[in-house]
Design a protein around this nucleic acid. Structure first.
Length: 280
DNA sequence: CAAGAATCCTGTCAGC
DNA sequence: TGCTGACAGGATTCTT
């Protein structure tokens, strides 16, 4: 579910509630997520202070006062929900619950259980198997057209598929790849290694602007995605191609009217939305 | 090696 | 209303 903008939004929400707080309660209701949770996860959290939080790709890292970090991935359907009050009957799919010293309750809810939680020594965070192979952060200044070209070099697969590969760029998912390619006017079917020169110079800012706009909007949502605050995200209203098969392309309409509309195709088993006329 | 398919799991929605 | 099949934000592992 959550792609970089949603994960960033969730991380910021967690930071606001968790940073500097001590974990005085921890409960695991279900340990069989994407992988089994670390043994005695609750015991390893209890009494620790949350020092700081950051995001890497679609992962959230929570640094604890004992030199370890919690590594969290939301998978397809993972959400963080906040609430106050007393312990109660666990809600559906409420797998992990934390309580902080200021009375807040933080719940990890994940119906499909594609999410994951692990504990890693803070000093070795970036060597964790899930993080070690991640590509550059698309919002970092270091993410240049040259760097993207280097990642795409020799790749004969479609640019759409390549951008979903987290070792080339970290954090993009199906929605924002479609949106970024539309913004860059690049066909999702174009062979990845042909995205060089001017095309790469269009794509990098297109990716950046797409993600920044989504973060600005508070993360988009599909159906039941909820921000940490409990409010629904709303960037979905700004989608230009994703989920818009059959609807007019905003670049093809407008006088003089043209018949261009958004198409849906399947690439590597995932839906791709694009405009045939304006994306080459 | 690279690329595509199958896989994990639950919920929702369209169509009959 | 109830059933069935298709599909969904991800990423790993297995096959070609």
């Amino acid at each position: 579910m959550p792609e970089l903008p949603e994960v960033e939004t969730v991380m910021r929400g967690l930071r606001a509630r968790l940073e500097g707080r001590t974990i005085i309660g921890a409960r695991v209701n279900r340990a069989d997520l994407r992988w089994p949770l670390p043994p005695d996860l609750a015991g390893r959290l209890l009494g620790r202070r949350a020092v700081s939080l950051r995001r890497r790709g679609k992962y959230i890292l929570l640094r604890l006062s004992d030199g370890n970090s919690l590594l969290l991935h939301l998978g397809m359907s993972g959400r963080i929900m906040f609430g106050d009050g007393e312990a109660d009957v666990p809600g559906a799919h409420e797998h992990v619950v934390l309580c902080t010293d200021d009375g807040a309750r933080i719940r990890f809810v994940d119906p499909r259980r594609f999410g994951s939680i692990d504990v890693v020594a803070t000093a070795r965070e970036d060597s964790h198997p899930r993080l070690a192979d991640l590509g550059p952060e698309p919002l970092d200044a270091a993410f240049t057209p040259q760097l993207l070209e280097a990642g795409l070099r020799g790749r004969r697969t479609a640019i759409k598929t390549a951008l979903l590969d987290q070792t080339i760029v970290a954090g993009l998912g199906n929605i924002y790849v479609c949106e970024a390619l539309f913004r860059a006017r690049l066909s999702p079917f174009r062979s990845a290694h042909t995205v060089i020169g001017r095309r790469a110079q269009r794509l990098v800012p297109a990716i950046r602007e797409t993600l920044e706009a989504a973060i600005e909007a508070g993360g988009s949502s599909l159906r039941d995605y909820v921000q940490p605050s409990g409010e629904l995200g709303y960037f979905q209203h700004a989608w230009r191609v994703y989920g818009r098969a059959g609807l007019p392309c905003e670049r093809c309409t407008g006088p003089p009217a043209c018949t261009g509309h958004i198409h849906r195709a399947v690439q590597a088993g995932r839906s791709t939305f694009f405009c045939r006329h304006t994306q080459r």
